[in-house]
Computed example of a mutant assay.
Amino acid sequence: MTNEFPRSLCIGLFGTGRVASQLAPALVAAGHQLAFIWSRTATAATALAATLPVTPALATLAPPLPAADVYLLAVPDAAVEPLLASVSWPEGALVAHLAGALPLSVFTALPAVRGGVLYPLQTFSPGRAIDWATVPLCVEAATPAAETVLLALAGSLSRHVLQLNSAQRLKLHVAAVFANNFTNHLLGIADALLAEAALPPELLAPLVRETVDKALNNPPFTVQTGPAVRRDAPTLAAHSAALAAHPAWQALYAQLTASIQAQL
């Protein structure tokens, strides 16, 4: 990694949502300066800026845009391309989105912009502090110079920096949805079923911890257990009957059972 630019970067941050609200203080803590924070909701930008030292809230996107070494788009995926098209970017500006599923090619329509990606592989929720040093940060860029800057920025935040192309990042994002979002949904179903039986949710905690620990230390398919693996037809039928009041969950149970058995 070269030293063609100062370690402390000046960053323009677009967004005030779950990612931006945790990224902004992390950038400051890493020694970077925020040139501004912008949000579609001016009050949200003002509120986030007020929690940080010497950070202005940008009230309008009318040109000229305040100068920055990097512009980070911490906005919803669907908002990235409209935002890119609506801003008069400085010539040669380095602009990076933080989305897992959006390709680098979203910058193709803006040849004057150096496009990049800085994707944090983590789930962000209000009230939960993130240890950025442990968050895998996935970098992709349109030019070697842009890549160098984004790698340095990523390295100032995390110990786990990866260079992934758009196809790899998309597959990673799909995997993350299975590992995180779908798993959380299944835990929600389990929690609801326990509540119906007047049972405390903490009953499942040791089982969940052991399941995750095994899956992280072994190829998950090789440590699969349960009635689907055993092809225990009476138990599978009893479970299906117990889910009769929840047809969607019953169908999901059947689909997951079939998927498990297809891996045997």
Rank of each mutant, 00 (worst) to 15 (best):
G31C: 02
Y253F: 15
R114Y: 00
D191I: 03
Q224F: 08
L118Y: 04
A190T: 13
L256Q: 03
A228E: 11
F36N: 02
G92F: 12
Y119M: 04
A79P: 00
A20W: 11
V174C: 09
E210Y: 07
W249R: 04
W249Y: 15
H160G: 00
A228H: 05
P25I: 11
D213G: 01
F5K: 08
Q250H: 13
V212R: 06
V87F: 06
R18V: 01
F107L: 05
V177T: 12
S156K: 04
T257L: 09
R40L: 09
V229N: 04
L121E: 05
R18K: 14
L199H: 06
E202L: 09
P126M: 13
A154I: 07
P63R: 06
H97P: 01
A245V: 05
I260Y: 04
T41D: 14
A99M: 00
R169N: 03
V212F: 12
A152V: 04
L162N: 00
Q122A: 08
L199C: 06
T225M: 08
L243W: 13
A35T: 00
E91T: 14
L98N: 01
A179V: 07
E81I: 13
D77R: 01
L61P: 06
P234E: 14
N165C: 13
L252R: 04
A44H: 15
A242T: 10
V19H: 09
V28M: 00
R7T: 14
T108V: 05
D213V: 03
N180E: 05
D213A: 13
P53Y: 14
A142V: 09
S105Q: 10
L84V: 04
P64Y: 11
R159F: 02
E91S: 14
D131H: 12
Q263N: 13
L23K: 11
T55C: 15
R169L: 01
P90K: 09
A30E: 01
P25T: 11
I11K: 05
L73T: 05
A29P: 01
G116K: 03
P126R: 15
L121Y: 03
F178I: 05
V75Q: 07
N3P: 02
T148M: 05
A78R: 08
Y253H: 12
T148G: 13
S8Y: 03
E91Y: 02
V95Y: 02
L23Y: 03
A141V: 10
Q263V: 02
A42Y: 00
A29E: 10
G115A: 02
A154H: 08
N180K: 08
S259V: 02
A237S: 15
A24M: 08
A45W: 10
Y119A: 02
P144T: 07
R40P: 04
S259G: 05
L110C: 00
L118T: 03
A93M: 02
A67V: 11
A251K: 10
R209Q: 15
Q22N: 11
V28A: 08
P126V: 09
A99F: 00
L150S: 13
F182N: 01
A57K: 09
